[in-house]
Design a binder for these strands. Structure first.
Lengths: 144, 144
DNA sequence: ATTACACGTAATCATTTTAGTTACACGTCG
DNA sequence: CGACGTGTAACTAAAATGATTACGTGTAAT
C-alpha cells in the first residue's frame, strides 16, 4: 500500500505555478512537466481549487496560487487531494468478537495509538511549506 | 487509501496469544475472536512467524510469543505484516519532465520530506509495545 | 497404522482504488 | 463565430484487499 501520488503531483503543480509565475500555467503545460494527462492535472487542480489553494477559472488559461507561498503547507496539499480520509491512515478490522476480552476492547485500545502515529506524520507535513519546496528545487537547479 | 487491517489484526493476534497463554491459541480460536477466516489468520501468523515474533509448528495446534512482551513493538508488527514497503508510505509520480526545472528536481526534493514524515510515524509505533496493548485491554476489561 | 486435527499455502472471487484516457459541455476572448 | 481551455463524466487496465475454498503435509492419540 502507498499513499496516492496525487499528493506528490499536487506539490509539483503548486511548485510549478510559482516558478512559472511569469508565464501561463495551463493544465496542458503542467501536464508536460509532470508527464501525465491534462485531464488528470485538471482533476487534481480542481481539488486544490476547492481547498482554496489556487485560483482557476473556466475558459481562462492558467492558474495562480491563492495564498502567499509560506502559507501553504504540505499538510494543506495532503488534505486537499484527499489521499487519506480523516483519521483513517490505518484501518482497523471490523466486528471483532464482543464475547472475547481481546475482541471486545482491542479497537478502543488501538485507535488512539494509530491516531498518535498518524498525527506525528501529519505534523511533519505541516511544518514544510511550498516555499521551502520552491527554494530547494531552485537551489538544486543552480547547483548544476 | 488506508493501511491494511492486517496490521491491526496482527496486533490482535499477538495480544490474544498473550492473554490466552494458559490456553491453546489455534488459528480457529483466534479467527473467532477477530471474526474472520482461519486461513486469513494463518496467513498473517505466517508473517509474524517469519519475522520471529511467534512460534508455530505445522500440525501442532496453538502459537506462542517468541519474545518477551516488552520486546515486541508495534513497529515490529507493522513491518512483519508487510503493509507498507520500506520507505514507500508515500508514492512519488514517475518520470517528470527532465527538461523542466521543477520536473528535473522535484523528486529529490520531495523524497527526504516524505521519509521524515514516515519516520516520525514509525517512531511512534516503535515506542508502543504489545505489553502496553495487553495492559490497556485488561484495564478496559476490569473497568466494567 | 490409521484417524482426526491443525498448520501452510495456492487458487479464486468481488470490491475498491489508482492512474490513465477519451469525450464533450461550457466559459472566455479575439 | 471560432479557437482555446477548464470542468467532468465515463470507461479502462492494473493492483491491493479481504474473504473463502481446497488440499497437501505434519503431529499425535487411539
Amino acid at each position: 500500500m502507498s499513499i496516492s501520488s496525487r499528493f506528490s503531483v499536487g506539490i509539483h503543480i503548486l511548485t510549478l505555478i510559482e516558478i512559472n509565475k511569469d508565464g501561463v500555467s495551463s493544465s496542458e503545460y503542467i501536464a508536460r512537466s509532470v508527464n501525465t494527462n491534462p485531464a488528470m492535472i485538471r482533476k487534481i487542480m480542481g481539488m486544490l481549487k476547492k481547498a482554496g489553494l489556487i485560483n482557476v477559472q473556466p475558459g481562462i488559461a492558467g492558474a495562480e496560487l491563492a495564498r502567499d507561498l509560506p502559507d501553504i503547507t504540505l499538510l494543506d496539499v495532503y488534505k486537499a487531494v484527499n489521499v487519506v480520509k480523516d483519521n483513517e491512515l490505518f484501518s482497523i478490522h471490523e466486528n471483532p468478537n464482543p464475547d472475547c476480552t481481546v475482541g471486545k476492547n482491542i479497537q478502543k485500545t488501538i485507535e488512539p495509538l494509530f491516531f498518535t502515529a498518524q498525527h506525528a506524520m501529519e505534523k511533519v507535513l505541516e511544518n514544510v511549506t511550498i516555499e521551502d519546496v520552491v527554494k530547494d528545487v531552485m537551489e538544486k537547479e543552480t547547483k548544476r
